[in-house]
Design a protein around this nucleic acid. Structure first.
Lengths: 352, 352
DNA sequence: TTGAAAGCGCTAACAG
DNA sequence: CTGTTAGCGCTTTCAA
């Protein structure tokens, strides 16, 4: 361990040629056949591999891209990161993980840290935004690509799914399959996903030709199963204005949807017979859960890939002008909205 | 964007003092109150932040640690990485993600790439090992910590759970709760987890006082739900030597366990009444699945944390001698082995 | 095509 | 306590 590494100078000495020629022979152009061979041989004998720090200092590039999210343990974020890595690694870029925490302040600090030049760019997906953060991104010395709408709205390069449209897809699917009393279980509406999903629901139910009889809304304290159970209880238990019970719930993500199903069970309701439930995010958990979850895929992997592609263009200097790149949401219909059970078949066909 | 960054020299000029004093005032010791204040002010005005490449080159340290696994999209690996990051970040270390792919060759290549000095150490969890990889690790110019037994056995610093012991816990739990005809659903036994789980099962059933009537084994082609369904069919459908059907299945991980439960349903068997099922890894999916899965926690987060702590000591030069650090497995009993349903209560208490 | 030399931004040894 | 200076490893002008 910790054997000392060979430097370019040593390779040059060994090959009996100049430093410059050595560098050229290994990397750049303009070296004779003989030179290349000679230097290669020397390099191999010494087990030489070029030092990244020296190279970075000279070139002003690190070949590293940062990925910053609130919580990298979150499967959605992990998936994004995997996609990012998948696209960037073949181009010689390493991915550095960072966590922003929950507040825009800490995200801002992270963006500011770009000043120390440890990466050539940053892909960031902040849970909240404020003016400071936007300003920091604008001033960043390297390209920043945002995932999510919050920053994109401020002229930052960004990719995002139209999750509002996704909620609309879910609502229309429910109405088309005969549901008439629809509940909406959202998370905190002061978060960016919460706000958008709210907008999506409001738009959907106020669209011309919307055919439901009744609409209720409940807010969970958080986008988690536990919070979902509690809030879904309120939604399903009460029959507010004396009407009949809800026959469908649109949940703002898969975790809340699972919470809703658990709550329904506790209340003796069966899913999807008594009440249909839709989720959002199309998580593996939702696919495996029973009944499997009808869910709107926001394509976190696709978001990661798209962000990576934009970043590649940016760091290679092909500066398009900043713009929002939409990634389309997609409704994946499964058992929780009343499609006949076909699990066995689906499993065999690899749909799981 | 891409505004040019201030250098230490510029700060020095602005403050009207020498370069060395500027450096000292900002970082090191030995600078007067007045000097510090003066330099700080200049630095602030210029929005200075120290360049990482220059610093790395001089110091010979990057304050980066690599984390290399086969597939960072795998939730287990994602969890490890989150834990690693959680421990390392507060100490000023960044985490760089790398993927080894499936073969020991590509892992070896990754370890060799440490020669280019882009990180101060690497935490690696290779799916397979060979002699070349071990040699590469030994020769690595920076500390390497392995997660998993395969490398640890060769004198490399490592953390691992005794998953063989974990299988034993599952088997004993089943016998203690009255099961007598036990199947073992393993993944490919030529993988390191497969081999260990096999050993664990063999040990458990050949232990003195082992009280089962019958033992069957099936191999899934992969550690996935789909492969699990197929293999579990074979295990549960046939009643080989004419005996009664199995009343318990120990699956080598949670995905296979879920596959087993799905297969059991297709065969009209109910879990846990007709057949008890245990998993391994204690995944979120297993907790949420219905019936919730009794599972052996191998503590991927704890492994990540432990690996990070060892790495910190190593990069700070406190070289303990290489050793294996065990992280204990833990059986988490849930519904799939016949514990009365208490989901509602558990959910409310936040056990989900 | 090859070599000599400058310098990326920083820290630390040395001298004052 | 402060300043001068060398040099980490590399790439790249500029001359030959």
């Amino acid at each position: 361990m910790t054997s000392s590494r060979a430097t370019l100078i040593q390779v040059a000495e060994r090959a009996g040629v100049s430093l410059a020629s050595t560098s050229r022979a290994l990397h750049g152009s303009g070296a004779s056949e003989a030179m290349v061979e000679r230097v290669r041989a020397a390099a191999d004998e010494l087990g030489y591999s070029p030092d990244v720090s020296g190279r970075s200092l000279k070139l002003g590039r690190t070949f590293q891209i940062a990925f910053a999210v609130a919580d990298i343990g979150n499967p959605v974020h992990a998936k994004m990161m995997a996609a990012l890595h998948e696209v960037l690694a073949p181009h010689g870029y390493r991915v550095v993980v960072m966590t922003t925490g929950d507040t825009p302040e800490s995200a801002t600090e992270l963006v500011r840290s770009l000043g120390s030049g440890f990466v050539d760019g940053m892909v960031v997906s902040p849970p909240h935004t404020d003016e400071e953060l936007v300003r920091a991104v604008r001033r960043a010395p390297v390209p920043v690509v945002a995932i999510g709408r919050s920053l994109g709205a401020h002229g930052v390069d960004s990719v995002s799914t139209d999750s509002a449209a996704g909620v609309g897809q879910a609502v229309r699917h429910l109405v088309e399959t005969g549901r008439r009393r629809i509940g909406f279980l959202n998370g905190p509406p002061d978060t960016s996903p919460g706000a958008e999903r709210k907008r999506g629901f409001d738009d959907a139910v106020s669209a011309p030709g919307f055919a439901a009889e009744r609409v209720d809304v409940a807010l969970a304290e958080d986008f988690t199963v536990v919070a979902g159970v509690a809030a879904a209880h309120r939604l399903l238990a009460g029959a507010p204005r004396g009407g009949a019970r809800l026959d469908a719930v649109v949940a703002a993500n898969d975790l809340l949807a699972i919470g809703t199903i658990l709550a329904a069970r506790e209340l003796g309701l069966s899913v999807p017979e008594d009440v249909a439930v839709t989720g959002m995010d199309d998580t593996e958990m939702g696919r495996i859960f029973q009944p499997s979850l009808t869910s709107v895929s926001l394509g976190s992997a696709e978001l990661g890939r798209a962000a990576a592609r934009i970043m590649l263009r940016l760091v290679e200097g092909k500066a398009d002008e900043p713009r929002e790149t939409p990634v389309g949401p997609r409704l994946v219909v499964r058992e929780s909205t009343g499609v006949p059970p076909m699990l066995a078949g689906a499993v065999r066909k690899g749909a799981l």
